[in-house]
Amino acid sequence: MVSVGVIGSGAWGTTLALLLARKGIATTIWDHRAERALEMQQSRENKVFLPHIYFPDNLRVTSDITEAVTDKDLLVLVTPSQKLRENVRLIAPYLDPKTILVSASKGIEIESLQRMSEVIAAELPAWKDRIAALSGPNLSSEVAEGKPTAAVVASSIPEIAVQARTVITCDTLRVYTSSDVIGVELGGALKNIIAIGAGFNDGLGYGENAKAAIITRGLAEISRLGVAAGANALTFAGLAGIGDLIATCATPLSRNQQLGRRLARGEKLDAILQSTHSVAEGVSTTRAALKLAERYQVEMPIAHQLSLILFEGLDPHKAVPELMMRDPKGELEGFV
């Protein structure tokens, strides 16, 4: 028998909990707000993020962190990236030494520039060899509805990746393993920046050719930074790279793509962020990515232009000419 705790009751956390519970695993979702936890436990659905998708009987919701963490074989951490550290500190006193920790959050901590698994390891050094990262082209609403998808779980310890894969894999989510934690995490985080750009493209009506160019050159930026940080270049040709990038850029189901569309319509960033329950990770990741790019001396022109739009009020119509008229380069410059 396996017992799993899910720390975070957003769309993706709830979706993963649903998949695990449907598989017959005793699963507990934790929400820090007692009233929200009680409402979900009683209504048997997450009305905010996944309305009308009802919980199996073996899925429990609690605001008691002890109940969510104690005696769990696997703990899935699915909190906003900038809140992960404080939540890891919260769970620390109740963790069992045998528990495997799986990060399903996609982001980079702005202050430390650490990936999510690095944040967990920094706070929980005794668990550094029991940490894995889950990523892939996984739009929550589709996965929760039972539509098929795939993901990759990465760990520096192969046995941990295999154990996590065994627990998470189900008939609608096929999970692969990887040893490239850096590549899997950076692919999952950085794609959110490019998705904002794809949303701009759709909002401005620039068409499919332009969006294909944004996705392709966005992948080049992600890969350059990832390789400089120590990732395997081939990881970005996989599920956590081009797979997640396509899914996130192609549809308004993506929070980041939708944010880009709304900015293109003239809405202000603060107003957009205040109007939604979901976190668009691409906003904070843009700041962190450019700091990492500076550290590794890597060019990220799309991310740079997006930062000017997001944080300095650049007119989106002016960003595209800036990108188009950059000095000509070889397509593989920065790789070979």
Rank of each mutant, 00 (worst) to 15 (best):
S284V: 10
N256E: 03
G207R: 10
G188P: 08
A289R: 12
I182W: 09
A264V: 14
L239C: 07
G207D: 13
P316D: 02
A228G: 14
L74S: 05
Y296F: 15
I110G: 01
A161Q: 08
L273C: 06
A303F: 05
G5S: 08
V61L: 07
V6H: 05
K128M: 12
K191L: 12
S254L: 09
A231Q: 11
S112D: 10
L124M: 07
A264Y: 12
G238W: 09
G146C: 07
I157L: 05
D71H: 02
L19R: 08
G188D: 05
L292P: 15
L124G: 03
N209I: 10
R262S: 09
G197H: 12
R44G: 12
M1I: 09
L310D: 00
K191F: 13
L292A: 14
G199E: 13
P321Y: 06
T248M: 13
V61I: 02
A210T: 09
I25S: 15
R22F: 07
K291D: 10
N46S: 09
L113H: 11
K23W: 00
A293P: 07
I194L: 11
R295W: 11
K291Y: 15
E267F: 14
P148Q: 00
S278E: 04
I194D: 02
P93M: 00
R115L: 14
A164C: 02
T62L: 05
L263F: 11
W127A: 04
G313K: 08
T248Q: 03
Q297D: 05
T27F: 13
D71L: 01
L18E: 10
G334C: 13
I100N: 03
A228S: 15
G8S: 04
Q258W: 13
L77T: 08
D315E: 10
R261D: 15
V61W: 01
T79G: 11
P252Y: 08
G230T: 15
T248G: 07
S141V: 05
L290D: 00
P51M: 13
K211D: 09
K128S: 14
V167D: 04
Y296E: 11
S105L: 13
E45H: 15
L323S: 04
T66N: 01
A264W: 14
T15D: 10
H277Q: 04
A240C: 14
P97R: 14
A233Q: 07
I100D: 00
G188T: 04
I182M: 14
P301V: 06
L50V: 14
G330R: 11
A164I: 01
I160C: 03
E185K: 13
V336Q: 01
F49Q: 03
S103C: 04
E281R: 09
E312C: 06
L290R: 06
I160Q: 00
K191Q: 00
L16F: 14
C249G: 08
G146N: 01
S179N: 12
L290T: 00
